Simulated scan of single mutants.
Amino acid sequence: MKVNGKVIVVTGGGNGIGRELVLLLLTKGARVAAVDINPAALQETVGLAGSRSGQLSTHVADITNREAVAALPAQVIEFHGAVDGLINNAGIIQPFRRVKDLDYAAIQRVLNVNLFGTIYMTKEFLPCLLERPDAHLVNISSMGGFLPVPGQTIYGAAKAGVKLFTEGLYSELLNTNVRVTVVFPGAIGTNIAANSGVTLASPAQTQEQSSRIKPLPPAKAAQMIVEGMEQNRYRVLVGSDARFLDLIYRLSPQWAANYIFKQMQNLLPD
């Protein structure tokens, strides 16, 4: 689906990939409804939109709240008149801890934002998409949704759920006007840890980790996601690390699991 002239809803539009998606879609002639839990972050996005801010509406909402999500379609349609696309981008990571050391509050929060938030948004907006002659749903999973990352096991389980949820929707919607894409970003240079309330490893460990994995700029990630959307691609691997690990995981899941453990073990507490 070409985005020019379309109305696209983007969750997590206040920062990171979500903000870059909003700005890119605006430059390509789309109208955008940016959803985020942080009103100040949304206002920063509006400021960055500059002269295109008239094409943009902002919606402060907690996507884990079903009632708040249920109210969004009417709000977006009131402003834009229709909804042609939805990009479920909002997500958080978990503290870098083994499952045995992770409290239930953190487990619930990660599942609610990453998995249930995506489900709630999709279920509420899907009837709007089905009414349009050409529509598109994009769900952002993660490299961690197909590859086990130690210290991010619950996050990975949530993103694996997003993967299968999206693939199921693709099959359910094959005979409709709604195209479906699932996205697997690798390491992206965003503030997802801080926005998730997660404290990373010590500076020395973080520096060592960053020397191994070069994050992709979020603007480049957004470009790849929108290109995948416009090309109606089934799946989009964002970053060379995601493409490499997807390949080796399909060749040997156990070798891939051992490899990523060696790369990430310094982020785990003793």
Rank of each mutant, 00 (worst) to 15 (best):
15 N>D: 12
16 G>T: 06
16 G>D: 03
17 I>H: 04
17 I>L: 14
17 I>T: 07
20 E>R: 13
22 V>C: 09
22 V>I: 08
22 V>W: 03
22 V>Y: 04
23 L>N: 02
23 L>P: 09
24 L>W: 02
24 L>F: 03
26 L>C: 08
26 L>H: 06
26 L>G: 03
26 L>D: 07
27 T>W: 00
27 T>R: 15
29 G>F: 11
29 G>I: 07
30 A>L: 02
31 R>N: 08
31 R>E: 07
33 A>H: 05
34 A>R: 08
34 A>M: 09
34 A>S: 15
35 V>I: 15
35 V>G: 11
36 D>Q: 10
37 I>P: 00
38 N>D: 15
40 A>S: 11
40 A>H: 08
41 A>E: 02
41 A>S: 14
41 A>G: 13
43 Q>I: 01
43 Q>P: 00
44 E>Y: 01
44 E>F: 01
44 E>R: 11
44 E>W: 00
45 T>Q: 11
45 T>G: 10
46 V>W: 01
47 G>T: 01
47 G>A: 09
48 L>H: 10
48 L>R: 12
48 L>Y: 09
49 A>H: 01
49 A>K: 04
49 A>P: 00
50 G>V: 04
50 G>F: 05
50 G>Y: 06
50 G>S: 06
50 G>H: 02
50 G>E: 04
52 R>K: 15
52 R>W: 03
55 Q>C: 13
55 Q>F: 12
55 Q>L: 15
56 L>G: 08
56 L>N: 04
57 S>M: 09
58 T>C: 13
58 T>L: 10
58 T>E: 05
59 H>Q: 14
60 V>Q: 14
60 V>F: 03
61 A>N: 07
61 A>V: 10
61 A>F: 01
61 A>D: 09
62 D>A: 12
63 I>V: 14
64 T>K: 11
66 R>D: 00
66 R>G: 04
66 R>W: 03
66 R>I: 13
67 E>M: 08
67 E>R: 13
67 E>F: 09
67 E>I: 14
68 A>K: 11
68 A>E: 15
68 A>G: 10
68 A>I: 08
69 V>H: 07
69 V>Y: 01
70 A>K: 13
70 A>C: 00
70 A>S: 12
70 A>L: 00
70 A>P: 10
71 A>M: 03
71 A>R: 11
72 L>C: 02
72 L>H: 04
72 L>P: 04
72 L>T: 04
73 P>N: 06
73 P>R: 06
73 P>G: 06
74 A>G: 09
74 A>H: 06
75 Q>Y: 01
75 Q>T: 12
75 Q>K: 15
76 V>I: 14
76 V>R: 06
78 E>I: 01
79 F>D: 13
80 H>N: 08
81 G>I: 06
81 G>S: 05
82 A>N: 09
83 V>D: 07
84 D>C: 00
84 D>Y: 00
86 L>Q: 12
87 I>Y: 03
88 N>C: 13
88 N>F: 11
90 A>D: 05
91 G>P: 02
92 I>Y: 03
93 I>V: 15
93 I>D: 06
95 P>G: 09
95 P>Y: 09
97 R>M: 11
97 R>C: 07
97 R>S: 13
97 R>T: 12
99 V>P: 07
99 V>I: 15
100 K>H: 02
